[in-house]
Design a protein around this nucleic acid. Structure first.
Lengths: 204, 204
DNA sequence: CGGTTCCTTGAGGATGATCAACGAGGGTGG
DNA sequence: CCACCCTCGTTGATCATCCTCAAGGAACCG
């Protein structure tokens, strides 16, 4: 298996030896909220986490999903600002927490981890640039295709068509569109053979 | 004068002692293009630079403006991806260039600079998060206000109203709107006293 | 004063959002 | 195994809004 630097990941034994603790969260539980300040480094042992923010109309914008081994919200530990998004679990999830001070010490003491961290930061800037570029571009189909591509790039399977493991609503939250729009655009894309919809399931 | 870590900046003497060279660019000259790979660390000695990308319709989205002392595009030096935007000068500009390898060596050798660099990366992620949050939010006035605020935060003057040093077109490119929309929203904001337009000039 | 860039206005149209209602599937408990 | 519920997908009608296109005016600069 190839090793990716895309998302920060620290060896669990190391984390525990530095006094990290594992905590279990129920499905849909809040891990941290917007406006809170960052006190911990979080890394998923098992489960899924969503970072997102919502506006006054209740419309939500998903920043990213994180899975086993991924760290999230770590960049906030470097700056003196509150979180720009909230994080909640998508299912029952176990997460390791390490205090900010100790994390910063680790980053200072272990050059390899530090490099990985820096690269993950740069990577995140890059992907956020790409995202805003796409979203500004308006066209719903364009946005959805871009989303499907980034998702497909992550999953290594290169079979003809992959089952897209997101609900229409989740795609809407990622692309800044509304559910109905996603549905309508997807079925148009089905007609033009850009995706396949079988039994309400979306394949790309 | 306060010292900000928001944007990376390396002492010029240090840069030159490492073999950096200064290069003069004419107004509107291209520094690097989308799809190019990053080979240099760039820092502005004197002038202004704009990073942006354009879509097929010719619509442009401005990522950021940079001024004296600012570095730009540096995060690309850490990742194996091409630039996500292009950079051009807004006026005649002098820029120091240092090779990627030497920059990475500096980052490795000088812990203070490295910290500054890491913080600037985190800062950039934060501001990009804020931007996409706002843009997703749709409402033109909301977007424009957010843009004016980030601009006002940067300029230290806290006088009642500041002259906004951007054309309507530039605001449009920052907010993902069209010129006419910016104009119309701004004059509505003038009516409701949220901005002031005197002699076609915008004050906020 | 001529040219260039920027600002402004209006009319018209396209399109995504909104609202409302219904259908389909999957899981759970009796 | 059936009945129920809950989430997710789907569709149509209507609406508001921003974009588009076109034209003209104002400011600025050499």
């Amino acid at each position: 298996m190839e090793y990716y630097f895309d998302i920060m990941n620290i060896d669990l034994d190391l984390l525990f030896s530095w006094g990290a603790i594992a905590k279990k969260y129920k499905k849909n539980e809040l891990i941290f909220d917007e406006e809170e300040t960052a006190h911990f480094y979080f890394q998923i042992i098992e489960g899924s986490v969503r970072m997102y923010n919502s506006n006054d109309d209740g419309k939500e914008f998903t920043e990213d999903f994180y899975h086993n081994g991924d760290s999230f919200g770590d960049y906030s530990l470097l700056i003196d600002k509150s979180y720009s998004s909230k994080a909640t679990t998508l299912k029952d999830t176990t997460i390791v927490k390490l205090s900010k001070i100790k994390f910063l010490k680790i980053i200072e003491d272990y050059p390899l981890l530090r490099n990985q961290f820096m690269i993950s930061l740069a990577q995140k800037i890059y992907s956020k640039s790409e995202t805003s570029k796409v979203i500004i571009n308006q066209k719903p189909e364009f946005r959805i295709v871009a989303f499907l591509n980034t998702f497909k790039r992550k999953s290594e399977v290169c079979a003809d068509r992959i089952l897209v493991p997101y609900t229409r609503q989740e795609i809407a939250n990622f692309t800044g569109l509304r559910v109905e729009t996603v549905i309508r655009v997807c079925s148009r894309m089905n007609d033009s053979n850009k995706v396949k919809i079988i039994n309400h399931k979306l394949y790309y």
